[in-house]
Amino acid sequence: MGLGPFLLLASLEGLVQAAVLSLSALGLCLVFGVLRVVNVAHGEFHMVGAVIAWSVSHVLFGHPLLGFLVALFVAPLLVGLIAFTADRVILRKINHNPEATIVATIGMLYVIQQSVLIGFGPDARAMEPPFYFHINFPWFGYSGYKLSVILMAAALLLMVWHVLSRTRLGLIMRATQLDREMAQVFGIPVGWVYGLVFAAGAMLAALGAVLMAPIRQVHYLMGLDPLLMSFIVVIIGGLGSIRGALLAALVIGMSDGIISMFFSPTLAKMISTLLVALVLIFKPEGLFGLRKS
């Protein structure tokens, strides 16, 4: 295969990766931005989203599109509910202390992952895509559904953008992010906002997972990769900066797609992880950080 088609395939793969990643990373970023905590269980919310999507489409006989559309609503809702409960029951008790939260969310990671192991089993299951058509390039074929994931993710991101910047809910979130005490003075129930934001972050991870589930198999250990990738994106983008995170998701998704076609994927992961750690040490405001901390 010539270099041109090779790059085309790599970019397509990268775009699909970036599309899903941006949703998931946006969730992590939102939580860090408002609550100032790192949610290590974020990848597990992604996994639970995929498991719910599979279960919904498995239970609903008929056209796979039906199951997919239902999953698109049900999965984020349920995952949001779990996350909200976890925030109220666990994280509130430790006052969202940053270090304690990491330990607590590690605990949540295991509880969620292992509960899914008990309920869903250890097998990797395939979810049928809601629609499937084949795109034939002269050099290789590509799944039409995969391409549509890019568009769907873009649409969902626009919706999130709208909520954050144009609605009252978004205003309250931003107010809480900027100044917690002041928000409280103005009568914003900060505790509830925290719970809602934590849930919203998890819901975004779940949304990405519903889009991803028909592409990859659903498995109880699938959460680790999105977690690490989202970490990378959020750090490069500048912790808590949403625009930075989106830009970073695009760059990281694309470069991961391209690098891992030229080199071994393991090596690609090693290099990117190492670089990100160094960014965090030497340039903690991130490469695309729009707000200086």
Binding site: I90, I94, A100, A104, I106, M108, Y110, V111, Q114, S115
Partner: peptide, 13 residues
């Protein structure tokens, strides 16, 4: 590993 998770949460809280 469920035990690991539960114990971690109980301890930290």
């Amino acid at each position: 590993l469920l035990a690991t998770g539960v114990v971690l949460i109980l301890l930290i809280v």
